[in-house]
Amino acid sequence: MNRWTLGTGLTVVLAAAILAGIRFGSVPISNADFFAVLMGEGDLVDRNIVMELRLPRVLLGILVGGGLAVAGATFQALLRNPLAEPYILGISGGASVGAVLVLALGWTIAGSWILPIAAFAGALVAITLVFRIATTTGRAMDVRVLLLAGVVVAAFFSACIALIFSISSAQTVQSTVLWIMGSLAAANWQSVALTATYTLPATLLLMRLARPLNLMAIGEETAHYLGADVEGVKRASLGIAALITASGVAVAGVIGFVGLVVPHTIRLLVGSDHRALLPLSFVAGATLLTLADIAARLILSPTEIPIGVITAFVGVPLFLTLLRRNLSTP
C-alpha cells in the first residue's frame, strides 16, 4: 500500500474518531446543543461534558495511543525482536510497583499527583535498572542482555506486587487492579498537558532518528559499517521510547496491545522504512485508542469496560487477518 494513501486514510479516520469521541458518550446530547458548545455557547452541563470530560479524554487517548505505537515500533527495530513492545523492559512492572506502593501505604490524597509521579518514578527506576544491567557486561549495550534484563526485572516487580497484595487490604488490591488494567477515565487538561510535554517532542526526536533506525533494524554490525553511531542511536532511542511509555503509564495505567500490534500492522502495510513507519504508527495508534475508548464508554454505558480489553479484541483479529494475508501472498 502506498504510504501517502495510508497516511491520508488514517488521518481522515482519526479526524472522524475525534469528532465521534467528543460527540458521543453515555449522556446523549442533541446536535443543536453539541454545535452550540463547539461555538463556545450552550449550557454549562453540555459544555462541561464536551470540553472538560470528552475532549481531554480524546486528546489523552491520541497522545497515549500514538506514543505507545511509536515506542513499540522503536523497540521492535532496536531489539530486532517481533515480540518487543513498549512494556518489554519492565516499565509497566516498575510503574505498577510505584502505584501499588503509594496505594498500599495510603499516601494518596484525593486529586494529588502522587500516584502518577510514583508510577512515573517506578518506570524510571525500571528503565535505569535494565539499562545498567545491559551495559555492565561491556562497554557496548547488548540488546540480548537488555531483553533478558527486561524480562527478569519485570518478573521481580511482579513478585513485589504479589507480596504487597498479600499483606494489604482488599480495597487496595481492588483499586490497584483497576489501575493496572488501564483507563483514560481520569483524563483532565493537566494530564493532557503532561503527556503532551513528553510524547510530542519525543516522537519528533525519534522521527529524526528514522534513518539510523532503518540501519539498526538490519543489524548493528551493518549499521556500524554504513556509518551509524550505533551506541548513540541505541541509547538515545531506547531512552526516548522508554520515557514515552513511562509518561503514558503514569496517566493511563497499562494499556496493552497498541504498542505491539499497531507497528506490526503498519509494517505489513507499507514496509519497514521508519521515516514512514513512525509517523504512521503514531496516527494509527492514536486512532485505535480513540476508537477503542469510544467503544469502552458506550458498550456497557454507564459502566466502562477496561480499554485494554477493547484494544485486544479489536487489535488482535485485525492483526491476524493481515498476517495471514501477508503470508499467503508470496
Binding site: 458518550g25 453515555s26 449522556v27 452541563v45 462541561n48 461534558i49 470530560l53 470528552r54 481492588q174 483499586s175 483497576l178 483507563s183 477515565a185 464508554r297 454505558s301 454507564p302 459502566t303 466502562e304
Partner: peptide, 14 residues
C-alpha cells in the same frame, strides 16, 4: 452512573 468507585463522570454532570 455506573459503579460507586470510578463512576461515569458524564452521567454525573448530566
Amino acid at each position: 452512573v455506573g459503579g460507586g468507585l470510578g463512576p461515569n463522570l458524564e452521567a454525573i454532570v448530566s
